[in-house]
């Protein structure tokens, strides 16, 4: 957990690229109209490679920069990105980024963190219904006589795991595709599996498809009124 060790020159140069990856992949996902965000792949990548502090900084700066350059609404969500990066770095320190199935566990832990943080923001800044797609799920729970707070928390706990597990798996498959020489320049390089890269990419993309299909299944179920 050495703060200084996280930040060598490679980390400082990787952070801007990671922020751009967050934003641009988020936009590609929007173009493809997929039912997820996938807007924190870069944050998780930096957290895993360089450490929790560097990940936290990447997450924080992503909301500041997309607030400055795209939509000021992003400023509201800064704690979420910050903790996603931090927790991603921590889970990597516990060795969860060595195998693809433990990455799923890591993604789930990141999702819980993210849900716990975005729920209060959604309640405090927007009163529960924000101008984002998740509000349809929130509204559905409110209709079932849950309180606003319960609905927001439930909706977040449903939507976050799928998004964050897919994010963690994508970050993992990116790391698998990078050269040992490149990875060796980051402080946490010993925490990622360096031997079996490349082979898993197919399995991982299959995993992502399964998760997205689960999302679709959920969306279809929630449209049918009881």
């Amino acid at each position: 957990m050495n703060f200084k060790k996280n930040f060598n020159t490679m980390t400082w140069v990787l952070i801007p690229v990671a922020i751009a990856i967050n934003v641009v992949v988020g936009q590609i996902v929007l173009t493809l109209k997929l039912p997820v965000f996938l807007d924190s792949i870069g944050t998780v990548l930096v957290g895993v490679l360089a450490g929790p502090w560097a990940g936290a900084l990447t997450g924080l700066l992503t909301s500041i920069i997309s607030g400055l350059a795209i939509n000021p609404d992003s400023f509201n969500w800064w704690p979420v990105g910050l903790f996603i990066g931090f927790i991603a770095g921590l889970t990597a320190q516990f060795g969860l980024f060595r195998k693809s199935w433990t990455v799923v566990v890591s993604g789930f832990i990141i999702a819980i963190t993210s849900a716990l943080l975005s729920a209060p923001i959604q309640i405090l800044a927007y009163g529960g219904i924000s101008p984002w797609g998740i509000s349809f799920i929130v509204s559905y729970f409110m209709k079932l006589n849950f309180t606003t707070e319960q609905s927001v928390v439930l909706a977040n706990f449903i939507s976050e795991p799928i998004d964050k597990i897919a994010t963690a798996l994508l970050a993992y498959s990116i790391i698998q595709g990078l050269s040992t020489r490149f990875l060796g320049r980051f402080s946490q390089n010993d925490l990622v599996d360096k031997d079996r890269r490349g082979k898993l990419t197919n399995i991982i993309s299959a995993g992502i498809i399964i998760f997205l299909l689960l999302v679709l299944a959920f969306k279809l179920l929630s449209i049918i009124p009881e």
Partner: peptide, 12 residues
Amino acid sequence: VVVSTLQILPQM
């Protein structure tokens, strides 16, 4: 980081 992100972003 901030200034260089603002340059990299449009390129990406």
